[in-house]
Design a binder for these strands. Structure first.
Length: 214
DNA sequence: CCATGATCATTA
DNA sequence: TAATGATCATGG
């Protein structure tokens, strides 16, 4: 197990700025979509590799104390905007009820993060250049964090008062509780898989993070 | 099996 | 285009 500090990870990633990630994924033996299947997570995986992290897909600690995330960007009227929201972490009902924002995984992941902006080239992402690498640390008294905490608290209260089913992606100004899961039908039980949710950073938050990190 | 990596699909 | 909900491959 190699030790990779955040600075090292960033420096490693910066070497690949402007490179085509798909080519690199091929070199690293990461499946993209050419098998006829779609691995939607390949960009994240290759970035973790490039950063020097040895973990591929595992639980929360993909770095030492930081998170490596990638977001696809696209151009709208000549301006680069985040195309999608960004998954932060799964929501665990019990933990959400028990822990406040600053004890949550959500905060743990959000507060120390390495972002990678990747250009989006349409469906299947045949190519994708690494646009930018940025790191960011949040402080507990940041105005933005206070607002994010408010969203977290709102979602938490809603879970307590109305139950897990009452949650929707509409909630929250900066973060939301969207559905996230394997989806489809469980081939063994033939039943619908249970709905799970995760915290997502809305595009507005993604944009803000990049502005701060710039 | 399920959380993690995220993107895809649909609707307005 | 933007927003929300649904979905996929992977590896421990």
């Amino acid at each position: 197990m190699k030790i990779v500090t955040r600075t090292t990870a960033i420096n490693n990633l910066k070497k690949y700025l402007g490179k085509d990630l798909r080519k690199l994924a091929l070199e690293y033996g990461i499946t993209t979509y050419e098998t006829g299947k779609q691995n939607k997570g390949w960009k994240g995986l290759i970035l973790e590799r490039l950063a020097g992290l040895e973990n591929n897909v595992s639980k929360a600690p993909n770095g030492l104390s930081y998170e490596l995330k990638s977001v696809s960007f696209h151009k709208i009227k000549d301006k680069l905007k985040p195309k999608e929201t960004m998954a932060i972490t799964m929501i665990n009902q019990e933990e959400l009820k028990k822990h406040g924002f600053f004890e949550s995984h959500c905060w743990a992941k959000l507060k120390s993060i390495v972002f990678c902006a990747v250009m989006w080239h349409g469906k299947n992402s045949e190519s994708g250049e690494l646009l930018k690498v940025a790191s960011l640390d949040f402080a507990e008294d940041d105005e933005l964090i206070k607002e994010i905490k408010a969203d977290y608290d709102f979602i938490r209260e809603k879970l307590k008062n109305h139950g897990f089913d009452a949650l929707t992606g509409k909630d929250g100004k900066w973060i939301q509780a969207r559905t996230k899961g394997t989806g489809g039908i469980n081939p063994r039980t033939k039943k619908r898989r249970p709905i799970t949710r995760a915290f997502y950073a809305r595009t507005g938050l993604v944009k803000k993070i990049f502005e701060i990190a710039s």
